[in-house]
Nucleic acid binder design. Structure first.
Lengths: 216, 216
DNA sequence: GAAAAAAGTTGAACTCGTTCATCTTTATAG
DNA sequence: CTATAAAGATGAACGAGTTCAACTTTTTTC
């Protein structure tokens, strides 16, 4: 049976994290002070720092939970993607986007992104970057699946291509959370517009480009 | 003739900015306190805030100077790009990258990027975003030039494409500044690898369709 | 079961960005 | 040239994240 100390520790950490999720979402990351979290979790300020290195750490922890969910949902799509390059890509992408605001506000995303860049070598930033990498990997995996299915041209490197596509998705999402007025609708439409020509270019022999031979 | 007050004002602002450029670069953005800048510029802390709204404002001001230079250099390339889609794109891109660390440290870039995301609706963030947009526009402009020259396929929208390419460049640069050990060499190589297939896909009928070179 | 050790909690104190009431300097008016 | 107004400089005070030496609680030892 687990010791008392261990149980208390786990309990405190859970209380702090729960307080964070609730309060960050309700009042915004910046508006919530460590003191507020400590109060809600019934611990002292010092104790909060015993469980999380910085305020940003607490935010990353809440964001990480969200991203894990998104990754799980994405895995299902990669396992059995819809027919067609465009539809398959959009299914995965929109899965990401549609979940993004379920538990997190735009302000929380902005702060987390800022943290991951600014404090990139800290456990904070590293953890966030790893999640990003796993998302990128999923896009790559999808392309590999599509390629093995014969949906994607054979002379392309799915890893490089997946990276480019993910970088674009990521940046579009950054723009989305930067603009408090931007709608998910708008984001989806913009990305669909972008993926349309890309899908066509990489899809297996769907079109016949002009046969004018020029140098590269 | 300019009044004494006006001259003093301009002089003070210049001193503060100069102190910022020097000290940020020497000791890092975070390590430098407003008090340090004030001391170096021979003004009081309050006066610094009379000229710049926040510490971040000062950083943006220094970054903006750098980006303006990069934009000017880029304009020359767009006006007369090298032959070939790949070479033209790389000339522009590498122009950006190679200038990036001339006056700014990676840490300064990270902080500026973080600011532009986190404080995206403030004058700070807006100014940085505008610079970003102008860079993206340059990529688009280059594609338009290439298209009018007949180097790029006719059935593609250069604006959308330019956006996708720029988003990728941007994200690659973010990864670059996030990793203190990453070299410009490495960045250039990675981006060249990405642009190679893209250039080929969008170039006017150059591709060799499915010659089947397996590379699992 | 008492005492020592280990682990964890606590909140006052510290740092640094930011603000604001007060004071100084420059410009204008009489 | 003095007096009044306008503009700007100043640094003490404030707020919030973070640290740390002292204190409590749990575990181990004998």
């Amino acid at each position: 049976m687990t010791g008392l100390r261990e149980r208390q520790k786990a309990d405190r950490e859970k209380r702090i994290l729960k307080a964070a999720v609730t309060k960050f979402r309700a009042h915004g990351y910046h508006a919530v002070r460590i003191e507020d979290l400590a109060g809600a979790a019934d611990v002292s300020v010092g104790t909060v720092y015993n469980y999380y290195r910085t305020k940003g750490d607490i935010l990353i922890a809440t964001v990480a939970m969200e991203v894990e969910e998104v990754l799980a949902a994405g895995a299902d799509i990669v396992a059995a993607p819809p027919a067609g390059v465009h539809d398959a890509l959009c299914a995965l992408i929109f899965g990401y986007y549609d979940h993004s605001l379920e538990y997190l506000s735009k302000e929380m995303w902005r702060s987390a992104m800022a943290l991951s860049i600014e404090a990139s070598e800290t456990p904070n930033g590293i953890r966030y970057s790893e999640l990003d990498q796993r998302l990128a990997l999923q896009v790559t995996d999808l392309l590999l699946t599509l390629k093995s299915r014969g949906d994607v041209r054979d002379d392309l490197d799915p890893v490089t291509l997946g990276q480019v596509i993910f970088n674009n998705l990521n940046q579009m999402f950054v723009e989305f959370v930067k603009d408090e007025k931007a709608s998910l609708q708008g984001l989806r439409a913009a990305v669909e517009r972008q993926m349309q020509p890309i899908s066509q270019l990489i899809a297996c022999g769907t079109e016949a480009p002009s046969t004018d031979k020029r140098q590269n």
